[in-house]
Computed example of a mutant assay.
Amino acid sequence: MRTGARAGERLELTQLAPSGRSILIGLALLLLACGSYALARGTSAFAVREVTVEGPPRHVAKQVARVLSPTRGRSLLALDLPGLRAAVQNLPAVAAVRFDRAFPHTLRVVVVPERPVAVLRQGKASWLVAASGRVITSLDRGDRKRLLRIWLKSDVEVRVGQRVAGELREAVRVVAPLVRAPLPARVASLRYGETELTLVLRSGAEVRLGDHSDRVLKLELARQILPSLQPDTRYLDVSVPERPVAGTTLNS
């Protein structure tokens, strides 16, 4: 009985195993698929005829399209997407990018632009800085009037496309939320240092934040307190969140 059972098992395994003919057919199909892919990469069957850019402002979209112009005429299958991603993200105004091969002839590009939050000022020079700390572009004096100014020390080096560092980076982090959630009073500029962060309002009054700690809490306190202050108030000090103080003279 055992011998018969074993023979039956061997017979079943033999029936389940693929035949030589099936293996040959499978290999042939695999080779055909590989050959078709290689042929498609090397022909104009899927050549890029159109590059669409979605997401950024028009002037940034033009910059992206210019960087990607060499892809026209190349096969969608042969594109070096990591290399293209690095080239596009090297643009100062681009935070991130995603590609989609929209067959048969379109390269679709989705761009996340950098978000401007302030204008850096140093003497007569001006630069636009993003929430990420990246310097997007240089500006003419008076551009972007609705963004607050951060006055730089003379020894601070600024390069378009690079991220600011140190105390200035912390200062940018402080003001970034004010673009989407502004204070009740309009902010004109920011003074910053190792132990000082002071928002100067359009009225000339100051909101003193102290050091970089608890910046979200301090901004929220200022947002709640400012509407209740008297018109002659010259400063609001929230550097110690547990004990906010307001005064009528800046030297207080």
Results as ranks from 00 to 15, higher is better:
3 T>E: 11
3 T>K: 12
6 R>A: 10
11 L>Q: 11
22 S>Y: 09
23 I>A: 12
26 G>V: 10
33 A>F: 15
33 A>N: 07
35 G>V: 14
36 S>M: 12
41 R>C: 14
44 S>Q: 15
47 A>E: 09
48 V>Q: 04
53 V>T: 07
56 P>V: 11
59 H>G: 05
61 A>K: 07
62 K>Y: 13
62 K>H: 14
66 R>E: 12
66 R>M: 06
66 R>W: 09
66 R>H: 11
83 G>K: 10
86 A>Y: 10
89 Q>W: 09
93 A>N: 01
94 V>K: 00
94 V>H: 01
97 V>M: 06
97 V>Y: 00
102 A>H: 14
105 H>S: 15
105 H>F: 14
105 H>P: 07
110 V>A: 13
115 R>I: 10
118 A>L: 04
131 A>Y: 00
132 S>Y: 01
133 G>N: 05
136 I>C: 00
139 L>F: 08
139 L>R: 05
141 R>T: 10
145 K>N: 06
153 K>T: 12
154 S>E: 05
154 S>D: 08
154 S>W: 08
156 V>H: 02
162 Q>L: 13
163 R>A: 05
168 L>S: 03
168 L>Q: 02
171 A>N: 03
171 A>R: 00
174 V>M: 00
176 A>M: 01
178 L>S: 01
189 S>A: 15
192 Y>P: 09
195 T>Q: 09
196 E>A: 11
198 T>I: 11
202 R>Y: 12
204 G>C: 01
206 E>P: 04
207 V>Y: 00
209 L>S: 01
210 G>L: 01
212 H>M: 09
216 V>N: 01
219 L>W: 00
219 L>M: 03
222 A>P: 02
222 A>D: 02
228 S>H: 14
231 P>V: 09
235 Y>W: 13
240 V>D: 07
240 V>K: 11
240 V>R: 08
